[in-house]
Design a protein around this nucleic acid. Sequence first.
DNA 1: ATTACAAGGTGATGTATATCACGCTAATCG
DNA 2: CGATTAGCGTGATATACATCACCTTGTAAT
Lengths: 190, 190
Amino acid sequence: MMDATSKLREHIEKIVPLSDDEFAFVRSHFTIKKYKKHQFLIQEGDAVKYAYFVVSGLLKLVFTDDMLKQHIVSFAMEDWWESDYYAFYTQAEATMALICLEDTEVLCLSFQDYKKLCDGLQKMERFFLEKSNFGFLAAQRRIISWLTSGAKERYEQLLKQYPLLIQRVPKSQLAAYLGVTRETLSRISD
Amino acid sequence: MMDATSKLREHIEKIVPLSDDEFAFVRSHFTIKKYKKHQFLIQEGDAVKYAYFVVSGLLKLVFTDDMLKQHIVSFAMEDWWESDYYAFYTQAEATMALICLEDTEVLCLSFQDYKKLCDGLQKMERFFLEKSNFGFLAAQRRIISWLTSGAKERYEQLLKQYPLLIQRVPKSQLAAYLGVTRETLSRISD
DNA sequence: ATTACAAGGTGATGTATATCACGCTAATCG
DNA sequence: CGATTAGCGTGATATACATCACCTTGTAAT
């Protein structure tokens, strides 16, 4: 198993190569934390102090509607970044919760350190730009999937796109991500 | 009416201030084009040469499914950026069409010039990072709207968020954006 | 002026998905 | 260990939305 620091470096260097000094600078902006299954990294109403890089484990980003129904906005597994980004960027209160589906180890980046990183090392701004572009494209793909497909096809597309994720997430949680009830998912996933 | 160059400068300076020299450098990477209602800026299967900044007019980004049904992935009006971004970033063939809903004037930025702009002027990389972050958040809001709401509520949220857009777009086109039929939209929009 | 088409509305009916109710099994925890 | 809960499946019924067919009105083109 690779340590958290090496994972982060390898992850970043998929996009921008870094010298040892540069990476030491990057590394100094992160703190490491460990959480157990069912723990909250962010609760609705909290200030959102960090964006998280997932070293190991699995998270869900949850939006709870006025009827108290929980919807999964996204999952985040190893090598993914996650937060309530609106609240993170604007330093507002969280409207979503970030919760462990498994024991999870994360590297935490505060908004101040995020800005320092972008200002101090142009490569990191490039890195975050690429990540943001990719996140946008993924969200747009999901919207197109919704526009064009019914529940069964959306489930099959999810299977195809994230086969590893599906094996680790209970079907009830996949249903909450797909926007159908667990009963419907049960009936269509044969 | 403001000219295209001033519009672009004002738009960028909402995020990063520029000196006259800096803006001249930025400006030199764009070309201007005008299109009539119903014209295509991008056709499915084309190479995607440009990302577009809309100076005036209104565009729709259209995905056509295998049953030839047309779905509107997004609209773009004054001060919005639009393209088939996946194809733009990867220099692949377009999977979507970009079409005028009104006579439209755009500033065109090629992928090469996009990279030159980011490399040559760090402020512009910052600008695109902010735009990309904002685009991601908007897409995520739309996903949450879909997870939590039925057609009527989604329509009302759209009305509330983009009141100006709604007045300029035929309801059949709004329906294709909301992911319902024009008949259903007609029945719920009383 | 006439035609043709775009935009919108509405009734009748079909289909996908939600809801409610219940049972089964296997993991988790005191 | 026994008790409790999470995860999953399934029938009966309700609801939201799609589909098909048709009509009206305004507007652009000839």
